[in-house]
Amino acid sequence: MDKTIDLVENTEKTKTYIGFWIYIMTDCVLFASLFAVYAVLHHNTNGGPSGQSLFSMPYALAETLILLTSSFTSGLSMIAARNNHKNKVIFWLAITFLLGASFLYLELHEFNHLVQIGDSWRVSGFLSSYFTLVGTHGLHITVGLLWMAIISLVVIKRGLTKGTIKGLTLLNIFWHFLDVIWIFIFSVVYLMGHIGL
């Protein structure tokens, strides 16, 4: 009897995981479309600045390192969950949250800076696509942070149940996925922009 219940729960769990992976795939297509738009428009500066003159490499590198580290710490929270260390899970989630929030702060700070010096999204096709591509990633980070905050509260309240571990796993998939997307943004937008490709 217990075995059959386990079996049912397992199929339910795999369903959620497969469904979530497919969702991630659709998000991939979404970003792919935005990257394609950026690729088409990134030379259309309309007399405004180009990526080469705008982007600061140390700044982008700092953002990258912070986000990569957050991915590592969120992985640590997953290991802690597997080992059933509730407090460690909360600790690593908190660290991940702080890192994610500082990444978001840096990104918004850069956006604000660009708008202040008069290089907003209204200037050119290049800047429209830059703000939209990077901003969509930022929006995903925001959703991830909200999710992280809520799941931390649930873990504190309910402990490490099957349900919360499932939620943590999904969150981790999401967070690592955002990391991968950021690596592409770093390469395509900042690195290639820096050398003027």
């Binding site: 088409v40 428009l41 259309n44 309309n46 999204w121 209204r122 200037v123 096709g125 429209s128 696509s129």
Partner: peptide, 21 residues
């Protein structure tokens, strides 16, 4: 929608947009 709301230039004729995209 971003073109229409925020004045971006994805598909506008001017401003470096590309309607054929």
């Amino acid at each position: 929608y971003l073109d229409r709301l925020l004045g971006m230039h994805f598909f506008t004729g001017a401003g470096g947009g590309n309607p054929m995209m």
